[in-house]
Simulated scan of single mutants.
Amino acid sequence: MTYFTKCTLPSRNYFEALETAEQRALHSFFDQHVIEDDELGYRAVDEGDYNALPPHLAIRVVHTVHGGMLDEF
């Protein structure tokens, strides 16, 4: 699932996307990525929505938060 945040300042938009990624990572098996977007600034993307990220998204990753849930039980 992808979440979009709209903001006028790119740095604020980055921190909003990072916060979304960190919150989602706590309850996910998948990594959460902050992606640079030409139109929106930054957005949080769940790797589980794409399996492996397609190359056009992978090159735009600026930060990754690893999923916090373990599948070892």
Rank of each mutant, 00 (worst) to 15 (best):
A44G: 10
N51L: 06
Y14A: 08
L9N: 15
F30C: 09
A17W: 04
E22C: 13
D71L: 06
R12F: 11
T20L: 13
M1N: 07
E16C: 13
N13C: 15
C7S: 15
S11A: 15
F15G: 12
V34L: 06
G68L: 07
E72T: 10
P55K: 07
L57Q: 07
I35Y: 03
E39Q: 13
A58S: 07
T20S: 12
N13D: 14
I35H: 00
P54T: 04
F4V: 06
V45W: 04
V34N: 02
E16K: 13
T2F: 06
D71H: 07
D37S: 12
D31L: 05
A52W: 07
D37W: 05
R43H: 11
L53H: 01
L9C: 14
M1Q: 11
L26V: 11
A21F: 01
F29L: 10
H27D: 10
D31N: 15
L70I: 05
L26T: 08
E22S: 15
A17Y: 01
A25F: 04
D46F: 02
E36G: 01
H56P: 01
R60Q: 06
A44P: 02
G68D: 01
G67A: 10
A21D: 01
P10W: 12
A58I: 04
L40A: 10
T8Y: 14
L9H: 15
A44I: 01
V34Q: 02
M1G: 13
